[in-house]
Design a protein around this nucleic acid. Structure first.
Length: 861
RNA sequence: GGGGACGUGGCGGAACGGUAGACGCGGCGGACUCAAACUCCGCUCCGGGUAACCCCGGGUGUGGGUUCGACUCCCACCGUCCCCA
């Protein structure tokens, strides 16, 4: 290819370098794909650098930007069909945006820290860095074989010291801002992986990874105070118009805002000790007949110290610690608990109520203690029944006497009863009154609670970013100074966790000096949750080798927010919430201009095979490489998007793939069979005068342009875009085969249909499209402006009108598009089939939908 | 238990209140071939009418409702899936 200036408008007269008939008879994807992949590399076709990186002056182009991003892969050795779907969708969008005049940024990287590489290291002794490097090379090669239009210059790995240096730097900024906390906490402990898990990584009481039952342990851990941002995370959802409602709902539920009250209970014979609770039902305070504490509650040992109940309570606390959290809080589980022998004072009525320890109360929900209102809370009711505790009604539904006994908790609306000054109030009114009363007495106040808990980020594992602090006997926890970053992972011989991080075994590394006092100190041995790494990678992409900070603000502010983010719905809560949190904090630190990282989000469905999710253990995995080898990357890309709506799960079918390959073969033959002696310029209506087939084909081509443009650009409906192109190809092929396009105007129409097809198919199947485009005498299809339909061909000279009687289809006819309503009605009434259906009755009403139908309504049901 | 999504041919799906089943898979029949593969052409929701061309009736999980008109909107139920408990 010579340095041809790209055609500026869709449809210059192309230079005829080689007639299409010179194409090989058979389409050979392997050759075509290899050729174009190196062609794009050589041309740096997909590199975008509108804002120069690393110090050069900025030159922002006068074109809209489009940051197209797919969730970065974890580099296991092999990509799977979910990746293919994800990255193909992103690639279609990237190509489409590029050709519709956007400056497109489409990067790729690897979420490279994490357990699989470390577990492999434990088995084989091979350092995780090496396992990971090999896997990245393998993944990269597979992605490249799919021909994605990725800017490979920006590739990053989160396990690269050049990257995690800045993960650590960001951690230190969080620390300075008071968003990092080290505290003793009841944590989910996976006995198999020998590490703590975030609550999010515990599913049904089992470790998300290895499915072992999770235990609770008290350990010092590192937290990020995401709860400080609970309200901001909620409020800024207003900015996320283009997120699926479903994902927003999930996030909203996860944050779980509830309005209620903090209420202080004093210990009966120790009024200096106050135990606060959070309740969403302060109106029911008069009905609190006992008090429950979580087994882990720090006051429990003190309350029972030296009392007869001590042994029993201690034993109960021990059992609870060995029970999975999810099991403890399951609604249908029998409510266990033990009495502490102590009482607290109900601030509403001064009554002393017994304090029990119960394992369904969790330390990290609210304050770890609750006021139990058995009359109006289902679990409290069950507990009261199980332990023979009193039940007091304080809400009476409409028409129910105030002292009607309760057979179950009443959680509905009603009027307050047995509640002193609150009697007669409705629930909401009583809530307000109670809060005001508590506040006035200094025993509580109205407050907002969140279900969201702080993010536990420390892991006692090797393969993660070391937490950049040292522990000094004199100074305590001291941050590592910025200029000493990164804190590199040390070499160790044994990666197996022993209840503490394997890093603890690296003694030379462990021993250091305190940056503050210069005395001896030990490095922190915990590493960070990999979700930390992936919470800011989209910023690093914008300046992947920048050394002056995690990213260059000018460049980041140009590209951010991501215009289109695409990934699996399984990340609807965690990853997306964490990335939003990080972006907000960095915004508040003045590091970046945007408050939200992802303007538009699309969540894709999963690929199933043989009725189940593809997985190695099921043995139903179809490796993408096999399909590429047999049919070509273009076929795979086309098929994966043709399978069905991109948001839905879809079932893999081998014969479905073959169908898409047959389609590409047909396109190949269509172009190869184009007449060589035709001026392939864009046809005008005049060129096709009197040639019905040619006119119809060009109209079809123009309608297809409209449809595909809408389907890709607005609807994210790739499968219907592909089927529209298939219709066009079918029509062209059929008409060409039966000789309807043998004339000069027919040839012109055929050329136009072929060029349109190839141009439209390019985002889906870029290699074959490039090859055919070249065969038709043009170059650089990747920067060819996206086709625009010629309006002259979008109007038909006749349209089909449907005639209905009482909404039922009775006849249809082709009429002139400008036929007026009266004429249409007259025509309807003259049609024998319409008359027959009317059965002689008079029309009561007629409805005319222009261009569509006439509906004659006759009476008599 | 709460919240959400979805139910259309043999299968994946299309139809953004206006011709239900586009496109693809599978199947059936035909052409090409010595034969096959490839390719091309035709048929393929169900029932019926002298199943060539055509015509009639029914049909989008079930039952109601709104509307001139409902796969589409509303209500209830049944079923499947997802999220949170």
């Amino acid at each position: 290819m010579s340095g041809v200036i790209p055609s500026v408008t869709w449809y210059c007269r192309p230079p005829m370098t080689a007639p299409p008939s010179a194409l090989p008879e058979r389409y050979d994807p392997a050759a075509t794909e290899a050729r174009w992949q190196s062609e794009w590399d050589a041309a740096r076709a997909f590199h975008a650098e509108p804002v120069a990186r690393d110090g050069e002056p900025a030159s922002v182009p006068d074109a809209p930007k489009a940051y197209v991003l797919e969730m970065l892969p974890y580099p296991s050795g092999e990509i799977h069909m979910g990746h293919v779907k994800n990255y193909t969708m992103g690639d279609v969008v990237a190509h489409f945006r590029r050709r519709t005049g956007h400056v497109v940024f489409h990067p790729m990287g690897y979420d490279a820290f994490g357990l699989p590489a470390e577990n492999a290291a434990i088995r084989t002794g091979e350092p995780p860095a090496e396992v990971t490097a090999r896997n990245i090379a393998s993944i990269r090669a597979q992605l490249r074989r799919l021909g994605f239009s990725i800017d490979w210059d920006t590739e990053i790995s989160t396990a690269d010291p050049e990257y995690y240096r800045w993960t650590q730097w960001i951690f230190l900024r969080f620390l300075e801002k008071g968003l990092v906390e080290r505290r003793e906490a009841a944590v989910n402990w996976c006995p198999t992986d020998q590490t703590v898990l975030a609550n999010e990584q515990v599913v049904d009481g089992l470790c998300e990874r290895c499915k072992s039952p999770v235990e609770l342990r008290q350990l010092p851990q590192w937290f990020l105070r995401i709860t400080d941002y609970a309200q901001a995370l909620l409020d800024d959802m207003d900015l996320l118009d283009d997120w699926p409602e479903r994902v927003l709902t999930m996030q909203r539920n996860w944050i779980g805002r509830s309005v209620g009250a903090r209420v202080e209970f004093r210990v009966a014979d120790d009024p200096g000790t106050v135990i606060p609770v959070f309740t969403t039902r302060p109106d029911t305070l008069y009905g609190a007949t006992f008090f429950l504490m979580a087994p882990e509650h720090p006051l429990v040992p003190r309350l029972v110290d030296g009392r007869p109940e001590q042994a029993e309570v201690t034993a109960y606390v021990g059992t609870a610690a060995r029970t999975a959290v999810a099991e403890r809080s399951a609604a249908e589980r029998p409510k266990t608990g033990v009495f502490t022998g102590r009482y607290v004072v109900n601030p509403a009525n001064g009554e002393e109520i017994p304090v029990w320890v119960a394992d369904y109360v969790l330390m990290d929900y609210g304050t770890g203690a609750i006021m139990a209102v058995p009359g109006h809370d289902e679990r409290d009711f069950a507990f009261a029944r199980a332990h023979d505790l009193p039940v007091q009604r304080v809400i009476a539904p409409e028409g129910s006497p105030p002292d009607a006994p309760l057979d179950e908790a009443w959680t509905g609306p009603g009027q307050l009863v047995n509640s002193g000054p609150l009697d007669g109030m409705e629930v909401e009114e009583a809530k307000r009154a109670m809060c005001a009363e508590l506040a006035a007495r200094g025993e509580g106040d109205a407050t907002v609670g969140y279900r969201l808990r702080d993010w536990l980020i420390s892991r006692q594992r090797y393969w993660g970013a070391p937490i950049p602090v040292v522990n000094c006997d004199a100074c305590g926890v001291v941050p590592v100074p910025d200029d000493q970053l990164p804190v590199l992972l040390p070499h160790v011989d044994d990666y197996a966790p022993q209840g503490q991080s394997p890093l603890a075994a690296a003694e030379d590394w462990l021993a250091t000096t305190c940056p503050s006092c210069g005395g001896p100190a030990r490095r922190e041995t915990d590493t960070m949750d990999t979700f930390v790494d992936s919470s800011w990678y989209f910023l690093r992409y914008t300046a992947p080798h920048f050394t002056g900070g995690p990213f260059d603000r000018d460049i980041a502010d140009y590209w951010l927010p991501v215009d289109q983010y695409i990934g699996g719905v399984e990340h609807a809560i965690l990853h997306l919430l964490y990335a939003r949190f990080f972006t907000k904090v960095m915004h508040d630190l003045g590091l970046v201009g945007t408050r939200e990282p992802f303007a538009r989000l699309f969540t894709q469905g999963m690929i199933h095979h043989q009725g189940a999710k593809m997985s190695k253990s099921r043995g139903n995995v179809v490796p993408p490489d096999d399909i590429i080898q047999r049919f070509g990357a273009d076929t795979l890309r086309l098929y994966i998007l043709f399978m069905g709506p991109a948001a839905d799960d879809a079932e893999w079918s081998d014969s479905g793939v073959e169908g898409q390959r047959r389609f590409l073969d047909r396109v190949w033959r269509l172009v190869r069979g184009l007449p060589g002696d035709v001026d392939p310029g864009r046809p005008s209506p005049g060129d096709l005068e009197g040639d019905g087939a040619a006119l119809a084909l060009v109209r079809k081509a123009e309608a297809t342009v409209e449809k595909v443009t809408q389907d890709i650009g607005e609807r994210f409906s790739f499968h219907t875009a592909i089927s529209a192109i298939q219709e066009l190809v079918n029509q062209a092929t059929r008409d060409a085969a039966d000789g309807a396009l043998a004339s000069e105007s027919g040839g012109k129409a055929l050329w136009h249909a072929a060029r349109t097809t190839v141009s439209l198919i390019f985002p889906f199947a870029p290699h074959i499209a490039s090859e055919l485009w070249e065969a038709m005498g043009s170059e650089r299809l990747w920067e060819e402006p996206w086709p625009e339909a010629d309006p002259a061909f979008l109007v038909a000279d006749s349209i089909t009108i449907v005639f209905q009687v009482n909404g039922k289809l009775r006849d249809r006819a082709d009429v002139a598009p400008d036929m007026d309503e009266d004429a249409l009605i007259a025509m309807a009434l003259s049609l024998p089939k319409v008359q027959a259906a009317m059965g002689g009755a008079e029309p009561k009403r007629t409805i005319v939908v222009p261009g569509k139908l006439v509906n004659v309504v006759v009476g008599g049901k």
